[in-house]
Computed example of a mutant assay.
Amino acid sequence: MPEDTSIPPSIPTGIPPPPSLSPVPRAVRWLLHAFAVLCLALGVLGIFLPGLPTTVFILMAAWAAARSSPRLHEWLWYHRFFGPMLRDWARGGWVSRRAKWNASFVMALCAVVLFLTVQKLWIPILASTNMAVVLTWLWFRPEPPQA
């Protein structure tokens, strides 16, 4: 009987496989897996909670999963929402223009809320300064080439 070389239905065609990394010791693997799950949970929460970053936590989850759980890493890599940002980052630290605008909007909204609700002025000033530094870095990241 000939061997079936077709791609499993869960893996989309045209997407390169996730990068593989060398294995780590078992104890480290368990710690990294726990870290990956924690970061994934925080990243998902970040979708719904303004001020909690999604992209950073998903990137950290993918980094830890690549070293601890090939199955979780592959799931993240091919995920319809998380996969594109991971693949763009792996190809050269690319960040889409849409992600930049979304981050800018959410950070501006958080800054407004802080200035309207926090009594001590130095707190929203410090937080807004940090957000401005992050946004400056983010807008200098390269964007993926247009298809």
Rank of each mutant, 00 (worst) to 15 (best):
P2A: 12
P2H: 11
D4P: 04
T5V: 10
T5R: 10
S6W: 04
I7F: 08
I7P: 01
I7R: 13
S10W: 14
S10D: 11
I11S: 05
I11Q: 06
P12L: 07
P12A: 03
T13S: 13
T13D: 15
I15W: 07
P16K: 13
P18T: 09
P18A: 14
P19M: 13
S20E: 15
S20P: 01
L21P: 02
L21F: 15
V24W: 01
V24T: 03
A27Q: 13
V28D: 11
R29P: 00
L31Y: 01
L31E: 03
H33T: 02
H33W: 08
H33N: 11
A34M: 05
F35P: 04
F35N: 05
V37P: 06
L38F: 07
C39A: 14
L40D: 07
V44H: 06
G51R: 09
L52E: 00
P53H: 07
T54W: 02
T54Y: 00
F57C: 12
L59K: 00
A62Y: 07
A64K: 01
S69R: 00
L72T: 11
H73I: 03
E74C: 08
L76P: 03
L76I: 10
W77M: 04
Y78D: 07
Y78R: 07
H79P: 11
R80Y: 15
R80G: 14
R80N: 14
F81N: 03
F82Q: 02
P84H: 03
P84Y: 01
M85G: 00
W89E: 03
A90R: 07
A90T: 04
R91E: 06
R91P: 00
G92N: 04
S96E: 03
S96T: 14
S96W: 04
R98Y: 11
A99L: 10
A99G: 09
K100V: 01
K100D: 01
A103Q: 08
A103E: 03
A103L: 10
S104P: 00
S104W: 05
F105D: 04
F105C: 04
V106K: 06
M107K: 02
M107D: 05
C110F: 07
C110D: 13
A111Q: 08
A111E: 11
V112T: 13
V113A: 13
V113L: 14
F115P: 05
L116G: 08
T117Q: 06
Q119D: 15
W122I: 12
S128F: 09
T129K: 02
T129W: 07
M131V: 05
V133E: 02
V133C: 06
L135T: 10
L135E: 09
T136W: 14
W137S: 11
W139A: 12
W139Q: 14
R141E: 00
R141H: 00
P142R: 01
P142S: 01
P142H: 02
E143H: 00
E143R: 03
P145V: 04
P145S: 08
A147P: 14
A147M: 12
